[in-house]
């Protein structure tokens, strides 16, 4: 009875909620087509143009607005995210595999790993910077910053793999052993193909988290900036619609990344699904 009244009210509320989530993006998207180089990062739109997109790629005529240093920063961020993704996924799979058995210190190690995602980035960045300066190690995006990124993304990969192994029927592994196949080869030929969808999710997690990470990177990356640091740099100075245009592009890029993941996932799931349907018909 109440639900007849309540449900529509809540539905309207959820609509407003989504508007709250997406509103800024709409505004950002609209303002990225602001006229340039005089047009500012606010309404009204003086004239629709793609100036700021051209500006981003260095195709616009020189003006007082300096171009965003995204070329190299983008390369660094992608490389760093790739390195982080591989390392934390490998560590995540290994650790989750270890957690399938009982061993002494298991719960302490669990908390140690989860700590990596709970401790705020500023603290990890600060600590790493302190260790680096006192030991005289140079800070680089590919060394110290890489370590802080793995500390952050590895727990996510670990938890994803833990959930996957929780539902994993280990009798297929035992079956493989009993056929005379060594544990290592069993992992390669049976376990890994079966946990692969989980590995993909862990990789996606690790990549996106690392790609977007900046609070750890801020203190630990040294001189060369990653992409989020380049954007963070614009906070202090006057912002121009080129940042908005850049936001639109990164969003599109993120979605294409997501699409690649979805395609890979569908491909690996489709066979099983098609088979299940055929079985249901038969």
């Amino acid at each position: 009875m109440e639900s007849k009244v309540l449900k529509p009210i809540l539905a309207v509320y959820v609509g407003l909620f989504l508007l709250f989530l997406y509103g800024p993006f709409l505004v950002l998207g609209i303002l990225s087509f602001q006229q340039g180089p005089e047009g500012g990062p606010q309404f009204p739109i003086t004239e629709w143009s793609t100036f700021w997109y051209k500006h981003l790629f260095g195709l616009a005529p020189p003006s007082r607005v300096s171009p965003l240093p995204i070329g190299e920063a983008l390369f660094r961020s992608m490389t760093l995210a790739g390195m982080t993704m591989i390392t934390s996924t490998v560590l995540g799979v290994m650790s989750a595999q270890a957690f399938r058995k009982n061993f002494r210190g298991k719960s302490v190690i669990f908390y140690l790993i989860v700590l990596g995602m709970i401790v705020p980035g500023v603290l990890v960045g600060l600590g790493t910077a302190l260790v680096a300066t006192t030991t005289g190690i140079d800070r680089h995006w590919w060394s110290t910053a890489f370590a802080t990124h793995v500390v952050y993304t590895f727990p996510f990969a670990f938890l994803v793999m833990l959930a996957i192994f929780n539902r994993f029927d280990s009798s297929v592994e035992e079956a493989s052993w009993s056929l005379g196949v060594s544990p290592l080869k069993t992992f390669r030929k049976v376990t890994f193909p079966l946990i692969f969808p989980g590995v993909l999710s862990a990789m996606l997690f690790a990549f996106t988290l690392s790609y977007d990470e900046f609070s750890r990177t801020l203190f630990s990356s040294g001189r060369d900036q990653t992409l989020p640091l380049a954007i963070y740099g614009t906070f202090t100075v006057e912002i121009h619609p080129n940042v908005f245009a850049f936001g639109v592009l990164t969003t599109i890029f993120s979605f294409s990344l997501l699409a690649v993941y979805a395609i890979l996932m569908t491909l690996s799931v489709r066979r099983a699904k098609r088979v299940a349907i055929q079985e249901a018909i038969a």
Partner: peptide
């Protein structure tokens, strides 16, 4: 929205609230 950079999401509030 999480697949858009955190910093861009923060910046997107400036033209909203200004």
């Amino acid at each position: 929205p999480f697949w858009t950079s955190f910093l861009i999401r923060v910046l997107a509030w400036r033209p909203m609230l200004g």
